[in-house]
Design a binder for these strands. Sequence first.
DNA 1: CATATTGGTGTCAGTGACTGACAGACGTCA
DNA 2: TGACGTCTGTCAGTCACTGACACCAATATG
Lengths: 212, 212
Amino acid sequence: MTESPTTGVRRTNTRQRLFDVGLELFARRGYDDVTTEEIAAAAGVSQRTLFRHFASKLDLLFADADVATDEFTELLYRQPPGPVTDAVLAAIAEQQRSLPLDETAAIVARIVNETPSLEEARRGYERRFEQTLAEWIAQRHAVRPDNFDVRVLAAVLVAARRVCVNEWQAATGVGSVVPLASRALSAIDDEALSFSPTIDRSAPPPPSGRAD
Amino acid sequence: MTESPTTGVRRTNTRQRLFDVGLELFARRGYDDVTTEEIAAAAGVSQRTLFRHFASKLDLLFADADVATDEFTELLYRQPPGPVTDAVLAAIAEQQRSLPLDETAAIVARIVNETPSLEEARRGYERRFEQTLAEWIAQRHAVRPDNFDVRVLAAVLVAARRVCVNEWQAATGVGSVVPLASRALSAIDDEALSFSPTIDRSAPPPPSGRAD
DNA sequence: CATATTGGTGTCAGTGACTGACAGACGTCA
DNA sequence: TGACGTCTGTCAGTCACTGACACCAATATG
């Protein structure tokens, strides 16, 4: 999931430096007004090297969010059995405890919120998270991840979480996300879903998972 | 919302021709393998003209979806009072009736589904729809569109709708979306939300709506 | 100790989306 | 006819991103 420090001390350093420098420039002058060449130069490397560490300019900005997502997923898998929404809420609460005030995340959030195109891009990045969540839900209910109900629930949970985090960060991160999340999740009734094989499909396609 | 045919016969023609040609090329060779210059040339105009009609290559692909979204919004506003989920389901059903088989939408769906980056981009495009939905919900409940509960509900509804449409289109558009939507919406309990002023905000900022 | 291998890097040339500026073509209307 | 607005082409430019090749340092191997 993350990087394996096989030999790479330099690698990690360069990557981290690029991230730090990039974030600072974005924060100061706005995402759109900073070129990848500038970031690379400020980090003392070539532009080509930047793109060896990050697949895109967006990837650089969201590198940290990706890590947080992985962490959140781990917390989910550690939750005891019970309703999905309860487990999600518990995981949110635990993550909040582990990083009560994440400077970096707050900066990224501010940058994203002041650039509409980034708000859109973030939604695109949610796709991976949604897939991960679907796998987790599917395991809990012992069904396949491409089950319709599973995908609905995953999509809906991710959307609700986004709004909560947004609201929380818009309030400059004061207080806790947990009350917000609790309120938002109350609108989601995962026990109303049956998680039985999708309707309109009398015969599920034998062992071939549809590509998503 | 849409375009006003002030003088534009040429304008509309060119735009439509660009869209048709573009879609055909995308369908045949894939979104990424078609350049905007090719589309323009195939439509008999310059690349610059293409970008005068469409803000981006993505905009060209999603031009039709945008229209469908506007139409859907209109249907929503015509629904009788009652739970939000009921109104959404009714609007989905009505739209399905009005365009039981939309060739163009099906082609776009196929193009999007075979290009992962487009699936992400589509989520970005949902932002506008979500905002529209939030305004509609806010009006129904006589609260402000930036109300937390409103935004949660809007986000969750848009997410659920996406999964339904995806599932429906993945089944090559057979049958109706309505059963899927009905099932998905059963997981959303909008009456669990109070729509009272957001918690953690004792004093709402007087008349200045926060930019979203 | 010499040599092969590997990983991080720089350089360079290129593609493709998108933009600003300017000018020409065309229709409309006074 | 002439002013005006709209649609358009051309051209030069920016910027994200990529492939190919070479370089250098550290490590492994003889």
